[in-house]
Structures are given as structure tokens and as C-alpha cells.
Write a protein that binds this DNA or RNA. Structure first.
Ligand SMILES: NC(=O)c1ccc[n+]([C@@H]2O[C@H](COP(=O)([O-])OP(=O)(O)OC[C@H]3O[C@@H](n4cnc5c(N)ncnc54)[C@H](O)[C@@H]3O)[C@@H](O)[C@H]2O)c1
Ligand SMILES: NC(=O)c1ccc[n+]([C@@H]2O[C@H](COP(=O)([O-])OP(=O)(O)OC[C@H]3O[C@@H](n4cnc5c(N)ncnc54)[C@H](O)[C@@H]3O)[C@@H](O)[C@H]2O)c1
Lengths: 225, 225
DNA sequence: CCGACTTTGTGCACCGGTTCACAAAGGGAT
DNA sequence: ATCCCTTTGTGAACCGGTGCACAAAGTCGG
């Protein structure tokens, strides 16, 4: 059955970490359809990657496959979940409950992955006190207290750009070391704090670049005036 | 040898393209504050990158700097904008006007970068006919007609995962070759079609991985943006 | 007009990540 | 038990990207 789980390499490449959630999603789908084992080739197709890459990624977690057969779906789901830290529950706070913050708070897709929205915080007196996604909107003045009380370890920043750095500083001081930032600013944080940014405007600009190239190619206005 | 500043090598590295919007944002801020010229060092700090990397990135567009002085802010804004295709107006359609689609439609940050929301489309009869962000919500049955009529060249997919591939196929058939996908599925598209995906759930899982590691072992995680 | 100073543009070594290709491992059939 | 077939796990070449370090290019004060 399972080979003696060899000591997992503590240094998993960042690129691999970024793909594990993709494999996990594909595996969940297969488990639901009753698939018991899957080959690297099939899983790779489902996840949209190269099969050699997938095998190398999984090999970083240990030798969980069986040659000639493939990988046990349930077992792999468990191993990847554990590696990503999804066997525990993460308390997430959303700061800034405007257009975007509301959409995130109401999204059900997070809970199903072990991320529980534990608090929503805003500065606008009109909004504070409202109930969003079943949660009472707390005042930004109580940010530190809320983080401590709810055991928040991940903060989602959805405030206007101008407020992002200040809020960031405060949550970091409060002990948070994982931040997902939607505001279009470069946040500066001390070492040891992870910031991941999602910038939709940048995504569109990258698409526009390629679209322009497809359409006109280098034949666009070449003035130099 | 070559003539003075001319559009250089047409093959701009993907990593460079992804950073140009970052430089552009920093430059816009500087222009607003009345800064006329900027050194690679200062701009790099503002954009959160290494200065050598910034210079190499800009060198792909041409020789737009002046040694001993730096870069002319306005001129650089123009050059980067042109390279990214932001000197023209892009018509964007949002398909799926739920939590997320609404937030996107109401967001002002796109228009300011040359992206005009030209249409919003949904399948729900309850929603079709409503006005969102000043636009009439069109029916998904009219998808192809709307794309043609409004000259849409970029589609944002914000439908449930189950509907994403079908909608994707239709917009591709309608001639769209640039898609920004928020649904947690791997889209399959023909060659020549660009798909960029934004998966917030994956971002949280990556944060959780590092968070778990920080809490557990003696190994320190490094920050990344 | 010159020489000191600043900053660009890039050659080069390096590094993480990708892909190919194949030996080794395991299962199943006979 | 042995052979054949499938599929893993990985060595090694390769590739794009990064960052150091510096010569070249340009500014500016005198
Ligand atoms: N909505 C989008 O689709 C979208 C897309 C890309 C980027 N963004 C970015 O995401 C962020 C939020 O966007 P939005 O559309 O939800 O904006 P919004 O204006 O609708 O919401 C911002 C919310 O933050 C609150 N806020 C302001 N200052 C605060 C503070 N100091 N502390 C706590 N809360 C504070 C406001 O009261 C408001 O409720 C912005 O930075 C925006 O640039 C949004
Ligand atoms: N809301 C979030 O914060 C969030 C976060 C991460 C990912 N996502 C993903 O983004 C997508 C949208 O999320 P949401 O929260 O807005 O969901 P939602 O259910 O609120 O909205 C989906 C909308 O799509 C419409 N729709 C359904 N089928 C359609 C079809 N065939 N054609 C056109 N429209 C159709 C529905 O009528 C609905 O209005 C989902 O795939 C979700 O997984 C959302």
C-alpha cells in the first residue's frame, strides 16, 4: 500500500505550491464522480498542466503514487490538503466592505475550502453595524480587538488605495502575517509578512497588450513627435 | 548601431509586460505630484522592484532614458501606455452579473485605464432588463449579437463554474480572443485565445500554506508581492 | 571646454522552473 | 515464477528571468 512516508522536503518550490490548489480542485471533482485512482496524465489534463510537471510537483510531497496504477484520489486529496494547511480552519477578516468586500463576504466558495469569514470591518458609519453575510460590520477603530477576539490570521484588504497602507500597518502590528490585497498599491511590510496582491486592472492591461499585438501587430502609429 | 529611440525588439518578455502596468501606476502618481523626471532607482522603489530589472524592462521598449538624469515622466507614461495598447479604448463585456460581476461593473478603476464596460450579460430573467452601472443587463441568448453590436474585444467571465466553459466557447466563436476568467475552472480554448484567470480561493490557499509553515517549523518564510 | 559626477543600458553569471526521456517499480496475466 | 505492460519518479538539458557590476553616455558647474 503506502510506502513509508518519507520525510517531506521542507522546501517546496513556490511554483509547486501555487499549483497544488489546482490539483486539489481537480481531485475533488474526481472524488465526487467516484473515481478511485488517477494517473498523472489524466490529472494533469484535468488541471491543465504538463504531466511531468505534475509528477515532479507531487514528488515534493512524498512518494504517494503507485507505478503502473497512478494515485489514490482520496489519499492524495488528504496529503495535498494537509500540505496546504487546509485540514485546519482559517479565520479571515475582510477590511473594507464596499462593492468588492461585499462580494467576497457573500461568496460561498471560501468556506468550502476551510476559510471562514470571521469578521468584516469598515470605516463608514453608514455601514458599521449593518449585517453582511450574517456578520455584524465592526468599526475600523476596533480592528486590533476584533483580530484578537476572532483569532484572525488572514486579512483581506478591500479598502480604497489611499487607506490600504495604513490598515496594513495596523493589522501587521496586531500580529497578522498573511494579507491578500486588492487595493492598487504596493504595500510595504516587514520581513516575515506575506502579501499577495490581486490587481484586476493589471490583468486587463496584460490582455490589452496581447490583443493589440494580435490585431494591429507592429503596424500601429509609429509617430515620434 | 541603430537610429535614435525607435520601437525596439517586438518580443517583449512576458514578465516585463506584467510589470509595465505597475510602472505606469507609479508614473501616474508622480505626474500628478508634478514630478518631471525620475531615476530608475526612484521609480523602482515606487513600483516595488529592483532598479536593474526596471531598467532592463524599459530597455525592451527603447532607449527612453537620459544618462545622468533619468526618465521623463510624461514621455514614459506615453510610451508605456502605447506599448500596452492603452491609447485606445477597449470595450469590455461582463458575463454573469452576480455578487462579483456587479462589483466589477460598478468599479471606476477600469474606465480610468481605457477599459470601458460596454455590456453586462446574464441568464437570470430576474436580472435581465435591470440597470447596473448605467447599463441595461442583456440576455445571454443575445450574447453574440451584443458582442458584435458593442464591438466587445475583452470578456470578463463571472458566471458560476458550471456555465463558464459554455459561455467561453460562445464568446470565442463570436470572435473574442481575450478572456478574464473568475470561475474556478480550467477553460479550454483554441490557440490564439488568451485566458487569464483570477482565482481568489487559490490565493488564500497559498497564504495558508505559508502561514502554516510560519507557525510550525523553524524555517522562516519570505515575503513576496 | 573640461573634468567630476550621475545614471543609463547591458554583458554575464546565476537560479528557479520546465520539459524530455527513460530506468525502475509495481500489477496482472498466464 | 516469469514476462509484459503501465506509470511513476527523476537525472539532465534547457529556458526564461534576475541581479550584479561596470563601461558608456550624458549633465552640469566652473
Ligand atoms: N470593485 C472592483 O471590482 C475592484 C476591482 C479592482 C480593484 N478594486 C480595488 O478594491 C478596493 C475596494 O474596491 P471597492 O469597489 O469595493 O471600493 P468601495 O469604495 O466600494 O469600498 C471601499 C470600502 O472601504 C471602506 N473604507 C474606506 N477607508 C477605510 C478604512 N480606513 N478602513 C476600513 N474601511 C475603509 C469604505 O467605507 C468602503 O466601504 C479598492 O482599492 C479598489 O481599487 C476593486
Ligand atoms: N464572489 C466572489 O467573491 C468570488 C470569489 C472567487 C470566485 N468567484 C467566482 O466568480 C463567479 C461568480 O461568482 P458570484 O459570487 O458573482 O456568483 P453569483 O451566483 O452571485 O453570480 C453568478 C451570476 O451568473 C449568472 N449566470 C448563471 N449562468 C449563466 C450563464 N450561462 N450565462 C450568463 N450568466 C449566467 C447568474 O444568473 C448570476 O447572476 C463564480 O464562478 C465564483 O466561483 C467569486
Amino acid at each position: 500500500m503506502k510506502s513509508p512516508s518519507q520525510p517531506r522536503d521542507r522546501g517546496i518550490p513556490e511554483a509547486t505550491v501555487a499549483r497544488l490548489p489546482l490539483y486539489l480542485r481537480a481531485l475533488h471533482g474526481m472524488a465526487e464522480r467516484g473515481v478511485a485512482t488517477v494517473s498523472s496524465e489524466d490529472l494533469a489534463v484535468a488541471a491543465g498542466v504538463n504531466s511531468a510537471k505534475l509528477r515532479k510537483d507531487l514528488s515534493h510531497l512524498g512518494s504517494y503514487g503507485t507505478r503502473g496504477v497512478g494515485y489514490d484520489v482520496e489519499y492524495l486529496v488528504y496529503q495535498i490538503s494537509r500540505e496546504l494547511g487546509l485540514t485546519q480552519d482559517w479565520a479571515v477578516a475582510i477590511v473594507g466592505v464596499g462593492n468588492l468586500g461585499r462580494a467576497l463576504a457573500n461568496y460561498g466558495g471560501f468556506v468550502s475550502r476551510g476559510f471562514r469569514i470571521a469578521a468584516v470591518v469598515d470605516a463608514d458609519p453608514e455601514v458599521v453595524g449593518d449585517t453582511i453575510a450574517g456578520l455584524n460590520v465592526e468599526h475600523i477603530d476596533d480592528l486590533e480587538a476584533v483580530i484578537k477576539r476572532r483569532g484572525v490570521s488572514i486579512v483581506v484588504l478591500a479598502t480604497p488605495a489611499a487607506a490600504a497602507q495604513e490598515v496594513c500597518d495596523r493589522v501587521v502590528t496586531a500580529g497578522v502575517t498573511s494579507i491578500l490585497n486588492f487595493a492598487p498599491v504596493v504595500l510595504s511590510v516587514p520581513d516575515g509578512v506575506d502579501v499577495r496582491k490581486v490587481d484586476l486592472s493589471i490583468e486587463l492591461q496584460i490582455l490589452a497588450f496581447h490583443e493589440q499585438r494580435k490585431a494591429g501587430g507592429p503596424l500601429m502609429a509609429v509617430d515620434s513627435q
